[in-house]
């Protein structure tokens, strides 16, 4: 399978990257690890005439317990014992992305911005042409939830839920300079599977920042999928919390990916539990309340009813395992 021709740019600074992005507005894609973009390009999904490769932009590198550069490779995160010790839930998620071969190339930024997925979208041009194109590429209708307004493609990144649960922030660069926003806010774009983030055209994710409050939390990420490697999440549940010695939970965050068009957090539900003891009954109530809100659609391998039912189970288990685990 060959790629259609494009022009390849390899800027060597963040400023140059942002400038280039301005010049090529709307006609380019950023290329990070390529493990998501290049299969999509091979399937002729939303091709652009320019690619801006980010592998030579030094500002996107660097890894510490405070900051993860967007171009840091997942395989390097996976092999970082300090990171695993500090953020066990994030480490779970990193080591469960796709396969070791994908993680060798895949990056933090690439996983945060992984294209949303759907049976009707992640198909070859031939396949899509044979059925009729969809809203997300080349067409004007959604085949999953038949209508013409909204795309229901599933957010399938593994890193976002645990990072959101840690209150991570994302550093963004654009023509107007750099800004930092909560990672959750980056995804707060109206819930459409096509317009997935609040990033302005040309803006680029530079790094993820982990607040000092994220240290010392107990955290866990639980991923539902058919096979223990390869598969994208059919559901991904991340929890992070701080428990007092007496068992009261001081802080609790919960985020879910793989179920809807964007990773969601449930602060109203979790903050109501803060300061109290997480009895089995409260955990069960929380799990069920979250399960009530999550509405998967039939565009992945496992049936939506099942995925929805698993939300409560996975939330409960993630909480139990996080609590039983070591603090970061």
């Amino acid at each position: 399978m060959h790629l259609d021709p494009f022009e390849l740019h390899r800027p060597t600074s963040l400023d140059a990257t942002v400038r280039l992005a301005g010049d090529l507005a709307g006609r380019f894609d950023y290329l990070a690890g390529g493990t998501d973009l290049l299969p999509n390009y091979k399937m002729h999904l939303n091709l652009r005439p320019h690619l801006i490769a980010l592998d030579r932009v030094p500002e996107l590198r660097g890894r510490s317990l405070e900051r993860l550069g967007a171009m840091e490779r997942l395989a390097d995160l996976e092999r970082d014992p300090a990171l695993r010790a500090a953020f066990p839930g994030l480490a779970d998620a990193v080591s469960e992305v796709a396969t070791p071969l994908v993680r060798a190339s895949g990056t933090v930024g690439g996983n945060l911005l992984v294209e949303t997925r759907c049976f009707f979208f992640n198909q070859s041009y031939f396949w899509r042409a044979s059925l009729g194109f969809c809203l997300k590429a080349d067409g004007d209708r959604c085949h999953v939830v038949p209508q013409k307004e909204r795309c229901y493609a599933t957010f399938s990144g593994d890193l976002a839920p645990p990072l959101i649960a840690l209150d991570a922030e994302v550093e963004i660069a654009g023509a107007d300079g750099r800004r930092r926003i909560p990672l959750a806010a980056m995804y707060d774009a109206g819930g459409d599977g096509i317009r997935r983030t609040t990033l302005a055209p040309g803006e680029i994710v530079v790094a993820v920042h982990l607040p000092s409050a994220a240290r010392g939390l107990r955290s866990r990420y639980k991923k539902l999928r058919v096979r223990p490697s390869y598969d994208f999440p059919e559901l991904g549940v991340a929890v992070a919390g701080r428990w007092e010695d007496g068992g009261r939970v001081e802080r609790l965050r919960l985020a879910i990916g793989g179920a809807e068009t964007y990773p969601r957090r449930f602060d109203d539900l979790t903050s109501a539990l803060e300061g109290g003891t997480l009895s089995d009954e409260r955990v069960r109530a929380l799990a069920e309340a979250v399960g009530e809100r999550v509405r998967p659609v039939h565009n992945t391998f496992l049936l939506p009813d099942y995925r929805r039912r698993m939300v409560a189970v996975y939330v409960r288990r993630a909480l139990a395992e996080a609590r039983a685990g070591r603090a970061g």
């Binding site: 399978m1 390529g34 493990t35 071969l101």
Partner: peptide, 25 residues
């Protein structure tokens, strides 16, 4: 499409999917 591993090569020593690697990089 990066889903079988038959095309694995070592890129600076690390197993990498050559089918999902741009040669110019």
């Amino acid at each position: 499409l990066g889903t079988c591993g038959c095309c694995t090569v070592l890129l600076d020593g690390r197993p990498t999917l050559s089918c999902l690697s741009l040669a110019r990089l």
